[in-house]
Measured scan of single mutants.
Amino acid sequence: APTVVALYDYTANRSDELTIHRGDIIRVFFKDNEDWWYGSIGKGQEGYFPANHVASE
């Protein structure tokens, strides 16, 4: 899976979202739409995150 790096912190608001912190490396499983992508950090943490909070490595 491609990876991206978090540019900003984001705290999940729902159970299907992913909390990310600046500098996190996120594996992107799919891009649901322009605004929300689905991916994982490490083991067990996965969910939707805002695409405008990340950039290609």
Rank of each mutant, 00 (worst) to 15 (best):
S56I: 15
Y8C: 11
S15N: 11
I25F: 05
G23F: 00
E46R: 08
F49H: 04
A55W: 09
G47S: 03
S15K: 14
A51P: 03
P50Q: 04
G42Q: 09
W37N: 04
G42Y: 13
S40E: 12
G39S: 02
V4G: 02
N13G: 10
R22P: 08
D32P: 15
D32Y: 13
V5G: 03
V54E: 03
S56M: 14
E17A: 04
W37G: 01
W36Y: 08
D32I: 08
G42W: 08
G39I: 04
F30G: 11
E34R: 10
V4S: 04
S15M: 11
W36F: 08
H53T: 14
E57P: 12
V28I: 08
D35N: 12
R14Y: 12
N33R: 11
E46W: 08
E17H: 13
A55S: 14
A12R: 07
I25P: 05
Y8Q: 13
D24V: 03
D32G: 13
L18Q: 00
P2Y: 11
R27L: 05
S56K: 11
W36S: 00
S40K: 15
H21G: 05
F29P: 00
G23R: 01
R22H: 04
Y38A: 04
T11S: 07
Y48T: 00
R22V: 10
P50A: 03
D32E: 15
I20A: 07
S15V: 09
V4Y: 09
H21V: 09
E34G: 08
A6S: 03
T3N: 08
K43H: 13
A51T: 10
V4M: 07
T11C: 10
Y48P: 01
G47V: 01
A12K: 11
Y48I: 00
H21I: 08
A51D: 03
S40I: 06
A6G: 00
E34S: 11
E46I: 05
H21F: 09
D32H: 10
W36D: 05
V54M: 03
S15H: 13
I26Q: 01
W36V: 06
Y8W: 08
L18A: 03
Q45F: 10
G39T: 00
P50W: 01
V5L: 07
F49V: 02
A12L: 05
F29T: 13
D32C: 09
E17P: 00
L7A: 08
H21Y: 05
I25Q: 09
G23S: 01
A55R: 14
A1M: 09
R14K: 15
G42V: 08
I41Q: 07
T11Y: 07
K43N: 09
F49Y: 02
G39E: 00
P50T: 01
A55V: 12
V4W: 04
E57S: 08
I26C: 04
F29H: 15
S15A: 15
V54Y: 02
P2V: 14
D35P: 00
K43E: 14
K31F: 05
A55Y: 11
H53K: 11
K31E: 10
H53S: 08
A6V: 07
R27A: 10
T11P: 08
I26M: 06
N52C: 11
F30H: 12
E34L: 06
Y48K: 07
N52Y: 02
G42S: 10
P50M: 10
I20K: 06
N52V: 07
W37M: 05
G42C: 12
K43Q: 11
S15D: 10
L18I: 09
D9L: 00
A55F: 09
W36A: 01
P50V: 02
K31Y: 08
T3K: 14
R14F: 08
D9F: 02
V28D: 03
G47E: 00
F49P: 00
E17V: 02
Q45W: 05
G44R: 08
L18C: 03
A6F: 04
D35L: 08
I41T: 15
W36C: 02
D9E: 08
F29L: 15
I26F: 05
A1D: 15
T19M: 01
N13Q: 14
A12I: 03
F49G: 01
D35T: 07
A12H: 01
V4D: 03
G23L: 00
D24F: 09
T3Q: 11
F30K: 14
R27C: 08
D32N: 09
S56A: 14
V54W: 03
F29E: 14
D16C: 09
Q45S: 07
F30T: 13
W36P: 00
L18V: 05
G23E: 04
L18S: 05
V28L: 07
H21C: 13
K43D: 12
R27E: 15
R22W: 04
T11A: 08
G42T: 07
A12Y: 13
N52I: 06
G23V: 01
N13R: 14
I41W: 01
D24L: 05
A6P: 03
T19P: 06
T19E: 04
Q45R: 14
R22Y: 01
D24E: 05
S15R: 11
F30W: 09
H53R: 12
N13Y: 06
D16R: 09
W37A: 01
F30V: 10
A51G: 03
D35R: 09
Y48H: 07
W36T: 04
S40Q: 14
N33Q: 10
A51S: 12
T3P: 04
R22G: 04
P2M: 15
D9I: 05
H53I: 15
A55L: 13
G42I: 09
T19W: 02
Y10K: 04
I25S: 09
G39H: 05
A12C: 00
E57M: 15
F49E: 00
G44E: 12
G47W: 01
W37T: 08
Y38S: 00
E17K: 02
R14E: 10
A51H: 08
W36Q: 04
H53Y: 13
K43V: 13
P2R: 15
E46Q: 09
R14G: 11
Y38V: 01
K43G: 12
R22F: 01
K31R: 12
G39C: 01
F29Q: 15
F49W: 00
Y8K: 13
R22C: 06
I25N: 11
P50L: 03
G44H: 05
I41A: 10
V5F: 09
F49I: 06
T3H: 07
I20T: 02
R22Q: 15
N13F: 07
E17Y: 05
E46D: 12
R14T: 13
N13P: 01
E46H: 12
W36G: 00
T11V: 10
S56D: 12
D35S: 11
F29N: 11
S40M: 10
R27N: 13
H21L: 06
F29C: 15
R22T: 15
N13W: 05
Y10L: 02
Y10G: 01
G42N: 07
E57T: 08
E34W: 02
R14P: 01
L18P: 11
K43R: 12
S40V: 04
D9W: 00
I25D: 04
S40L: 05
A51W: 06
V54G: 03
A51Q: 10
W36I: 06
I41S: 13
V4T: 06
A12M: 04
K43A: 14
K31N: 13
R27T: 13
I20V: 10
P2N: 15
N52R: 11
Q45G: 07
H21K: 15
V54S: 02
S15F: 12
L7I: 07
Q45D: 11
R22D: 02
Y8F: 12
N33P: 01
F30A: 15
G39F: 00
R14A: 11
H21P: 00
R22K: 15
S56V: 14
G23P: 02
V5Y: 04
H53D: 01
V4I: 01
Y10D: 02
A12P: 10
W36K: 05
E46K: 13
D9K: 04
D32A: 13
K31H: 13
D9N: 07
